[in-house]
């Protein structure tokens, strides 16, 4: 189970942390798990770490971890099985993908375009770059 979060190293000694000061830590925990679900590292009905395992691994207060997990339960991303633990909802990935898609243009494209305008990059150049990055993607 640790492997699923393994790409994010968290060392006290170097002060490196998967969490930053940008938003509440519980929120960042929820986002990290969502990312794992989206990337397929956490599959449907797969068990996630317990809050205590999570807290010990990332060296955070277990109440903070529990808050992040609770948010995911409230959003329907995870479900609880009493006495066993928390699992990924069968349709979690689908609904997360849907949410991200809804937010994609507002969160990613629009700021990109306005930034391009401010610093004077013609939109055609941006489109060209995107075209170049397309590679083997299906259209």
């Amino acid at each position: 189970m640790l492997r699923f979060f393994g790409e994010v190293m968290n060392l006290w000694t170097e002060g490196v942390c998967m969490f930053d000061d940008r938003s509440p830590i519980y929120h960042q925990i929820a986002e990290a798990i969502k990312n794992d679900i989206l990337s397929g590292e956490l599959g449907a009905d797969e068990q996630v770490m317990s809050t205590n395992q999570y807290a010990a691994y990332y060296r955070i207060n277990p109440a903070t971890a529990a808050k992040g997990f609770q948010q995911l339960v409230d959003e329907g991303v995870l479900y609880k099985r009493r006495g066993i633990g928390m699992f990924v909802s069968p349709d979690a990935r689908r609904s997360l993908v849907e949410q991200r898609r809804e937010r994609f243009f507002a969160d990613v494209v629009e700021p990109m375009v306005s930034e391009a305008r401010i610093i004077g990059i013609p939109l055609d150049d941006v489109v060209a770059r995107i075209q170049a990055m397309r590679g083997g993607e299906p259209v």
Partner: peptide, 10 residues
């Protein structure tokens, strides 16, 4: 110490 504290607390 922090690790031991956290583990023991949990």
């Amino acid at each position: 110490f922090y690790d031991a504290l956290l583990e023991d607390y949990m």
